[in-house]
């Protein structure tokens, strides 16, 4: 997993609530057997019509919005557990998703792929959307070590992340590295476990 320490970037706003993982990557694009290449189908049915033509008013087709940060309405990533959603966002180039609320499985999938789901209060999210509306090239700085998100309009805002996941992101560690290292403890646990 790639490390995540600090990032300064412009951002892409999608002020829609309850964006489900079927929108992030529709099921018909889940047929690959590798983790690569999902970015070209990110938000596929919002980006392209049924004939494959770009839908001009969708933000990813608007050149003035770019960057490694996606800003989305509350309850981002609900629905299906498909990790392909995190892969598609990462493959497209996003490293941070900012929202006022994340669905659990998406949050976990993002963290397992070096993408930071950064949760802010609704009123901060509103200010961020306003700031980008006013100035598409507004920059946002995310500092994971200090747990702060900064911009001209919002100043320094702190965010929460659990200390274990923070350490994983800062060092690029996967859960699996840790789990494999304690296999013998798992074997000990199995000996005492009661089960039917």
């Amino acid at each position: 997993m790639d490390k995540f320490i600090r990032l300064k970037s412009t951002a892409v706003p999608i002020p829609v609530e309850d964006i489900d993982t079927d929108q992030i990557i529709p099921a018909r694009f889940l047929k690959a057997t590798t983790r690569d290449g999902f970015g070209s189908n990110l938000f596929r049915d919002w980006r392209f019509d049924n004939n494959g033509n770009s839908i001009h008013d969708f933000v990813l087709n608007n050149n003035i919005y770019k960057g490694q940060i996606l800003i989305a309405g509350r309850n981002f990533g609900c629905g299906s557990s498909r990790e392909h959603a995190a892969w598609a966002l990462g493959d497209y180039g996003f490293r941070v998703i900012i929202s006022s609320f994340f669905a659990d499985i998406f949050k976990s999938n993002a963290l397992n792929n070096g993408i930071l789901p950064l949760q802010v209060e609704d009123k901060i999210l509103h200010l961020i959307f306003k700031e980008i509306e006013k100035n598409a090239s507004a920059e946002f700085e995310v500092d994971l070590e200090r747990q702060t998100l900064s911009s001209e309009e919002i100043g320094d805002v702190s965010f929460e992340i659990d200390s274990y996941k923070k350490k994983c992101l800062l060092n690029g560690y996967d859960d699996i590295d840790f789990l494999i290292s304690i296999r013998s403890e798992i074997e000990e646990f199995e000996k005492i476990q009661e089960t039917y």
């Binding site: 976990s108 397992n112 699996i176 494999i180």
Partner: peptide, 20 residues
């Protein structure tokens, strides 16, 4: 409960998950 593919790999490899 449902899990992502990275977690599928963790369960296949260790029969465990790291959870809150």
């Amino acid at each position: 409960f449902g899990i992502g593919t990275s977690q599928v790999e963790q369960v296949l490899s260790t029969q465990c998950l790291i959870l809150q």
